[in-house]
Nucleic acid binder design. Structure first.
Length: 745
DNA sequence: GTGCCGGACCTTTTT
DNA sequence: GGTCCGGCAC
């Protein structure tokens, strides 16, 4: 088929224009739901198929691994395999890691650097404050981190930062911590997230031959979500595109919601100034939402001053009004969400993944989770405590990192006494002092101390055993798979025993997590044959939970609005529409903060395809005590003709629709239902306790991992009750208190 | 060197 | 309501 005919079947006129404008800078302002990813994909297809551009010369940058892998998948279905494989599709951060692993030695640094995550950074900054500041308690670590990150994003070194703080006493104190922090990172050959960008920029600036290589390689550059770029990122892109000028950025200033982490909205607002030759194309047809939702969202966002004027339109149906519901407290709010989902389910929307509950802060997930669990609905929480940030996972990853690079003190310290080897503060201080004196790394210091026979008996045994094991693992890793190595390490250190001995109820789930980690590694090995332990560690360092989110599973999705960007759902619940929560602001919230919150609200609204619910709680638990709340000002910003209040009939305490399964239609709630609901509101014991009473042989239950099952019999008493369940032929005996079972039906 | 207790502080949002 | 950290007892 003729390419142009094909394109006009797939895309609308402005989208086609964006695809065909291949030479020179291009700004695509793509509103929510306007098919921007689709446009990008076809643009790459067009470059390769029509313009005969070598796929190898195309770079497509995204912000999340999820977005990158989605793009890769969609390219694969459109292009011959070899072509789609050769396009460099990557996140900013992984592209930078790839570049630095090759060339950072040109800056006099080690190519085998470690990557610190946010928690590592936090711990190190705290420590640095204590080590160099005169009154550590008056210097808040978050303030310091903010300054460090901002400085790096603005491409200033610690020295330059100190220069800028000349007259500023407080700033100078931060500068000293910053300098110390940098020294510590360099000594340990470690880079934080912001360093990844900073050093790529530095590399390009100081080594024109390296820049030239990448300029020639990346002749056609595409950047997704350009409104989220920070200064460092935009400068890297600027340098890369300088030679060929084939830079296409896609974004929506109205969806810029990462200003707080350094995203500079001016990058997109001023694109035409930075690239005077730029062409600008607007994608304003929305394919996602109903008229009502889209018009309401348009109205809300139009209140922002700092934006490019535009108005999305759609051919979609008019749709139902947006519903606003005020609940007594967050338990009732959650109950309402659960009830609404049940009344829709098997009605207009037949899958659980048609529903999403969004919120401003992760802490709100708990109440919603509890309501859904009590009602036996299948849900999943995206984000929150992340898998790779769990203690047990970080421990084992640190073991792997130490095998790769024992000189990294940060990782070594994390595991040197985990599990316990009787190596405490005193011993470590002693080694540190010795190592400093001899100008050795901590690891080399330990070895040297053995040779010098400087160690006391107490910790000697534990230390020598640890060092011997480390040698053994390093040898072992040379000709064994990552998963085998980890298995051996877990075995040698009795790590599972160590977890099991922690009598907390977390023990079981921690052990499960370790198994999941092993399974994850095996999967990685299968997917990436020939990749090394170092490759795996890079992958883990840049992995986030939203990457894991898959449409496939049929569950209700709970996540923050930030995580929801780029996704869509037929039915969206936006919970917590309260002043000080959404918009979130404590003491003072200035206009530009408010505008960012409004953009966030706009993102939330535009996730909805068919139905949108806004809910709030009149009382909410904050830090354990119940507080009265007032309504979010955003509610008033939604035009009243698109909004209808669900009063829950006459009862303002929060009546709701109940789905009557026998009649297969909703009925109104009765006093009895309300009583029942308020029982769930205050579960005396947690759901584990409740469920134990409820479950009996013959009940159907749902388990996160095993799916649906049939209860066969119970065994034992009280806390230690075990339950035998048949999961589709597979019989399992589980401890009730750990199994997290949900009753079905 | 380890483990337990109590108080402070906490919540944005994420690569 | 949860986490982290310091202090104290063993």
């Amino acid at each position: 088929m003729n390419d142009l005919n094909y394109l006009s079947e797939q895309l609308n006129p402005p989208q086609i224009e964006a695809v065909k404008h291949t030479e020179g800078p291009l700004l695509i302002l793509a509103g929510a739901g306007s098919g921007k990813t689709r446009t990008l994909i076809y643009r790459i297809w067009y470059l390769i198929e029509e313009k005969r551009v070598n796929p190898w010369n195309i770079l497509a940058v995204t912000f999340t691994n999820k977005a990158a892998s989605e793009m890769r998948n969609r390219l694969q279905s459109l292009l011959p395999r070899t072509d789609s494989m050769n396009v460099w599709v990557s996140t900013f951060h992984s592209a930078c890691v790839k570049i630095l692993r090759q060339h950072i030695s040109r800056l006099g640094m080690s190519n085998s650097f470690a990557i610190l995550d946010g928690n590592d950074q936090l711990r190190i900054v705290k420590k640095c404050i204590k080590e160099v500041d005169d009154s550590p308690e008056s210097l808040h670590h978050l303030a310091v981190i903010k300054e460090i990150r901002q400085s790096k994003n603005e491409l200033n070194t610690a020295q330059e930062y100190k220069g800028l703080m000349r007259e500023n006493y407080y700033g100078l104190r931060i500068a000293d911590v910053f300098l110390h922090y940098e020294r510590k990172l360099r000594e340990n050959a470690s880079l934080d997230f912001d360093d990844l960008l900073f050093f790529v920029w530095k590399l390009f600036k100081e080594h024109p031959d390296v820049l030239d290589y990448y300029q020639n390689r990346c002749r056609y550059i595409l950047v997704d979500e350009y409104q989220d770029t920070n200064h460092a990122q935009s400068q890297i892109i600027y340098l890369l595109a300088e030679k060929h000028q084939n830079i296409c950025v896609v974004g929506d200033d109205d969806q810029s919601i990462y200003r707080w982490r350094g995203a500079d909205i001016h990058n997109i607002l001023d694109f035409e100034k930075v690239y005077p030759q730029a062409k600008t194309i607007y994608l304003e047809q929305n394919y996602r939402s109903t008229q009502v939702i889209l018009k309401a969202a348009n109205q809300v966002i139009s209140l922002n001053q700092m934006r490019k004027e535009k108005e999305l339109w759609t051919d979609n149906e008019e749709g139902d009004k947006i519903i606003f519901f005020e609940a007594f407290n967050e338990q009732m709010e959650s109950k309402y969400i659960s009830q609404k989902i049940q009344s829709f389910y098997r009605g207009d929307f037949s899958h659980y993944n048609d529903f999403a509950a969004l919120y401003r802060t992760n802490a709100q997930a708990r109440a919603i989770e509890e309501a859904l669990r009590n009602d036996g609905l299948s849900y999943r929480i995206v984000g929150g405590l992340k898998f790779y940030e769990r203690k047990e996972i970080k421990d084992l990853i640190a073991y792997l990192k130490v095998v790769v690079n024992p000189d990294n003190q940060l990782n070594l310290l994390r595991i040197i006494n985990v599990p316990h080897r009787k190596i405490g503060q005193a011993t470590i201080a002693k080694i540190e002092a010795f190592a400093d004196e001899q100008h050795l790394s901590l690891y080399q210091g330990i070895i040297a101390m053995f040779e010098a026979e400087e160690l006391t008996t107490g910790s000697k045994k534990g230390l020598s055993h640890f060092i011997d094991s480390l040698h053994k693992w390093r040898e072992f890793s040379k000709d064994h798979k990552i998963s085998s190595l980890l298995e051996v390490m877990i075995e040698d250190t009795d790590y599972m025993e160590y977890l099991a001995k922690e009598k907390t109820e977390q023990a079981e789930s921690r052990i499960e997590n370790v198994k999941e980690l092993l399974a994850g590694i095996r999967y990685f090995e299968k997917q990436n044959e020939g990749k090394t332990l170092e490759d795996y560690l890079d992958y883990v360092s840049l992995f986030t939970d939203i990457d894991e989110y898959e449409k496939g599973a049929d569950t209700i999705t709970l996540m923050t609005v930030h995580s929801a960007k780029g996704l869509e759902f037929p039915v969206v619940f936006m919970a917590g529409m309260e002043k000080d929560l959404f918009p979130l602001g404590r003491n003072s919230i200035n206009i530009s903060d408010l505008e960012e919150e409004r953009r966030l609200f706009y993102v939330a609204m535009t996730r909805a395809q068919k139905r949108l619910f806004l809910t709030r709680a009149k009382k909410r638990n904050i830090f354990g005590s119940s507080k009265d709340t007032s309504c979010s000002p955003f509610i008033e910003e939604v035009p009243s003709q698109y909004l209808t209040r669900d009063t829950g009939k006459s009862d303002s305490q929060g009546a709701y629709e109940i789905f009557d399964y026998r009649a297969k239609r909703p009925r109104e709630s009765t006093q009895r239902d309300l009583k029942k609901a308020s029982f769930f509101q205050f579960p005396e014991s947690t759901s584990e306790g409740n469920i134990q009473e409820i479950l009996r042989a013959g009940d159907r239950v749902y388990h996160e991992k095993w799916g649906e099952g049939l209860v066969l019999y119970k065994e034992g008493q009280g806390e230690n009750t075990k339950i035998s369940i048949n999961f589709g032929g597979l019989k399992k005996k589980l401890m009730i208190k750990y199994a997290r079972l949900r009753k079905i039906g």
